[in-house]
Design a protein around this nucleic acid. Structure first.
Lengths: 194, 194
DNA sequence: CTCCGCAAACAAACCGGTTGGTTACTCACG
DNA sequence: CGTGAGTAACCAACCGGTTTGTTTGCGGAG
């Protein structure tokens, strides 16, 4: 008989696509089961509830959300551009995080469950500030929030324009250039500082 | 007898709160009717459907989404800070826009229906670039997207930290300062340019 | 001023499809 | 034969939407 772990895997994959597209309230358990070529009861056997399934999907993607692209505090512009490309390649990551924000955690730190990983990133930003590679004025947490925000300027959650892989490659290139330049200007050490 | 327009108004207000909090799929028509102290049938008399009600709420907020704060292309840092405060004061605006993006318009231009107003803003950015007040390298549309993205770094839709009015005032002030500095650095004309 | 008729506003019960969740049962394998 | 994977039918609550019947304000006829 079929392998339970394999079914679990298919359910997680199907759920990822479903939640990314429709959110928690909009997702349909039957649709997930069908798309995973499994039975609805399996979902409840493995994940207890629809919310439990979302939790499983979300924690599995947490490491991706946080470390889809390893932070390079010594090259924030390059980091931002790599994030732009990563979001283009893996829109589910942005979507899951945004749905979680809207439907689960209205205020405060969304990634509190991964506080350790985030803290490590902030420490590296702090080091880069002390090394004179990043403007030391803003708090590391604010630098991080702003870099992420800038990288997501054209993400699937943007309130202006959401990029898609169908866009003209030249357009992507234009955005990458603009993004890198903006990040460089925004966080480079100020002239006149030590 | 009660005024129809007044009922319509209460429905729109209640729907705004409901949609901002729960999104389209998560919103409950009964809850809106109850919270507006009206009857469910009125919703269908005035707005035809749940989706029609969301449309009405959204278009009513479109002008706010676009012009909650008038764009001052000659002072982008100040503009960004005013947006930060506006989002703090009117989180529904950000939330409605984000829900619309996630549940309605997965890619492309979210504000295509208000293309004229947006085009006017881009024109003013373009003027500021020609006047040497803004870095002329990036396309006006990209400047706009990035300024909005930066202003929303701590918005209720942020994937890092969402600000709330309960936050320490000093924290808000820290973010305003960091935001203004980042926008200044990101879009000021590059040294060495004319 | 009163009465009547009318249309818009309103209320509540109702309807049928959908949805998250359950159960009773079958099947393959060690 | 026992155990865990898999299935299909089932269920009760829910939810968007409709229907039916009632109330209210108002303009006009008497």
């Amino acid at each position: 008989m079929g392998d339970g772990q394999a079914t679990r895997r298919r359910l997680l994959d199907a759920a990822t696509a479903e939640f990314a597209r429709y959110g928690i309230a909009g997702a349909r358990v039957d649709r997930i089961a069908a798309s995973a070529q499994a039975n609805k009861a399996q979902i409840y056997a493995w994940f207890s509830s629809k919310d439990g399934l979302f939790d499983a999907v979300f924690v599995e993607h947490l490491s991706l959300i946080v470390d889809l692209v390893p932070l390079d505090a010594t090259d924030l512009p390059g980091y931002a551009v790599r994030l732009y490309d990563a979001y283009l390649d893996r829109p589910e990551v942005v979507l899951l995080a945004t749905w979680a924000r809207l439907e689960r955690v209205p205020t405060g730190d969304l990634l509190a469950v991964a506080a350790d990983d985030v803290a490590a990133k902030l420490a590296r930003i702090s080091e880069a500030q002390q090394a004179g590679l990043v403007d030391p004025a803003p708090a590391p947490a604010d630098v991080y929030s702003m870099v992420i925000a800038l990288s997501m300027a054209w993400s699937p959650a943007s309130v202006t324009v959401a990029a898609s892989t169908d866009d003209d490659p030249a357009e992507h290139e234009r955005r990458r250039t603009a993004l890198a330049a903006a990040v460089r200007g925004a966080f480079a050490p100020r002239a006149g500082a030590t």
